[in-house]
């Protein structure tokens, strides 16, 4: 089981209200990603769930029981830290065994569980090494191993891939996703990288300044961002946001159009290509469109347009997002 409910959870450090008040339901077996810019309170929220910080007010329920005042060890959760937080003086075997040893499990059973975790994570050959002798990806696996042997009711991940290089990050991302599919345990994953959020999550929680901006599946957030913040945050490259006359024509304060939803060739809008990036699979254009501002356009495949060219382009009509003066979505 791994069902977690936050009710009006607030956290202040002195006068600074890091989390002004959050309500959230996380269902058993869900992969939930907290995403947001740095300083948005996503890590604090995770640490509140872990019990590494006290809530200022509000309640945290884990599997229906009030866990607000339980110490971290009693919550039945496991955490993987950004720096991996492996014990440098212990071998991989001892690192993975540590939580079991703390729980007072008998040595034979500990051995069995450690061996199992090592097999699952491809660490069998490294059990007697120390963390200092491992690569970044291997360390990450040890940290995950330490988490899975406890069979926790939920896993907490605090930006676990940010210390890895780009290639490794993609691989580990897939491994964690597969792990979730095998274990079917609740996972809460914090990241500032919206690609990680989009690729891994069942449910994304977008945070900004301690507030939840929107909760939904990746495609819901992509298709129907509830407000300007989510519109700008989810999607890469970023959505083009246009204000002024063009927006007023559609009865909105601001309209948004994603770069991939712009057709090049003809249309009402025109501009000069300031920069063109040809990747083969995609072509990214930065277009100076006068009153509309600088627009990003994404063309599929090879597009025969170059820096300095003047082009005409148009939005796909059904893909235009409209927002009111408060930044909220108009439908």
């Amino acid at each position: 089981m791994g069902q977690i409910t936050l009710k009006q959870v607030r956290k202040s450090f002195g006068d600074v209200h890091v989390i002004p008040g959050v309500d959230l339901d996380i269902n058993d077996g869900e992969f939930v990603v907290f995403v947001g810019p740095s300083g948005c309170g996503k890590s604090t929220l995770l640490r509140l769930i872990a019990g590494l910080e006290d809530t200022t007010s509000g309640k945290i329920h884990i599997d229906g029981k009030d866990a607000t005042d339980l110490p971290p060890a009693k919550r039945g959760l496991a955490m993987v830290f950004q720096s991996y937080a492996l014990y440098p003086h212990m071998t991989v075997r001892k690192n993975i065994a540590f939580p079991l040893k703390m729980a007072g499990m008998n040595p034979a059973e500990i051995d069995k569980k450690v061996e199992y975790a090592a097999r699952v994570l491809n660490l069998a050959n490294y059990l007697d090494r120390r963390p200092g002798q491992l690569s970044g990806g291997q360390r990450q696996r040890v940290a995950i191993g330490r988490a899975i042997v406890r069979s926790p009711s939920a896993f907490l991940f605090d930006e676990p891939l940010s210390n890895l290089d780009a290639a490794l990050r993609v691989g580990m991302r897939q491994e964690i996703t597969e792990l979730h599919q095998n274990l079917k345990t609740t996972m809460i994953y914090v990241t500032h990288d919206q690609v990680e959020a989009m690729t891994m999550a069942d449910k994304i929680v977008v945070l900004n300044a301690g507030n939840i901006e929107q909760v939904g599946s990746p495609l819901e957030l992509y298709r129907r961002p509830r407000n300007l913040f989510v519109a700008g945050f989810i999607g890469s490259p970023k959505m083009n946001l246009i204000e002024g006359a063009e927006a007023a024509k559609l009865g909105a304060k601001t309209i948004g159009i994603r770069p991939e939803h712009i057709e090049v060739g003809s249309g009402p809008w025109s501009g000069t290509v300031a920069l063109s990036e040809h990747l083969g699979s995609d072509t990214f254009l930065k277009v100076d469109a006068g009153e509309l501002g600088i627009m990003t356009v994404r063309g599929s495949g090879e597009v025969n347009v170059h820096t300095g060219d003047r082009i005409q382009f148009a939005p796909q009509a059904d893909k235009v997002h409209r927002f009111d003066a408060n930044g909220l979505r108009l439908d």
Binding site: F13, R47, G51, L52, E53, D54, P71
Partner: peptide, 8 residues
């Protein structure tokens, strides 16, 4: 940054 019990 810590909990009340660790501060105690």
């Amino acid at each position: 940054m810590s909990t009340q019990s660790t501060r105690l």
